[in-house]
């Protein structure tokens, strides 16, 4: 990893180009962690909820950074939004991912939703619906590793790792340890498909 000082715009064998490497991701998450702490004046009342699958390891890493900065362990959970999606009926029934709300619940807390890529905004809309059925937080904020634009709903992120202007024909692939064995954000040139990455 350390032997790649400038991975930007490197073209890989599969036609993808890496826009963030492991160290870029680490720096972005460190900055996001500090920004969340700054905005909320500390880590009390915070709950981090990752959206499966890639949002969960991101939320855990942000919590680790916060623990090293503030010395407070922020509760981390996961929130599956599958059943709240507006395109549920358009595809075969999808496998559910785990929803784990931390023991303290979210009532009266500031929930920070964490996801890998912000695209149409529809996932976040579904997540907001899911949150209302779990409890009533004091506020909801959104942290994403990559904002690739093309919003279809009036939704914006509070904390962004990298703004990544993309065309609709491109796909953004986020790989994270230990899930994918490597940390990277890549852009793939492709025709628009209805595949998983295109839906993000």
């Amino acid at each position: 990893m350390c032997a790649q000082p400038a991975a930007q715009h490197d073209h890989e064998d599969d036609g993808s180009r890496t826009v963030l490497d492991a160290r870029d991701i680490t720096r972005a998450l460190t900055r996001i962690s500090h920004e969340i702490l700054e905005r909320n004046r500390g880590a009390s009342d915070l709950v981090l909820l990752g959206i499966p699958s890639r949002g969960v390891p991101l939320a855990e890493r942000i919590a680790e950074r916060m623990a090293s900065v503030e010395g407070v362990q922020v509760p981390v959970g996961s929130l599956d939004v599958t059943m709240y999606r507006d395109d549920l009926r358009l595809k075969p029934a999808r496998t559910l991912m785990p929803t784990e709300i931390p023991p303290g619940g979210i009532d009266g807390k500031v929930v920070v939703l964490v996801d890998d890529v912000l695209y149409s905004g529809r996932t976040i809309r579904a997540a907001l619906d899911a949150i209302t059925e779990v409890g009533r937080p004091k506020g909801v904020q959104l942290a994403v590793l990559v904002d690739r634009g093309h919003r279809e709903l009036p939704i914006r992120a509070d904390f962004v790792g990298k703004n990544l202007p993309t065309s609709l024909a491109e796909r953004v692939r986020v790989s994270l340890e230990p899930h994918d064995g490597v940390d990277a954000v890549q852009i793939l040139e492709t025709t628009p498909t209805h595949g998983k990455e295109a839906a993000r």
Partner: peptide, 12 residues
């Protein structure tokens, strides 16, 4: 019921 009816067709 979710796996049979939740989507446009049963889960793959």
């Amino acid at each position: 019921l979710y796996l049979l009816l939740g989507g446009s067709e049963p889960a793959h």
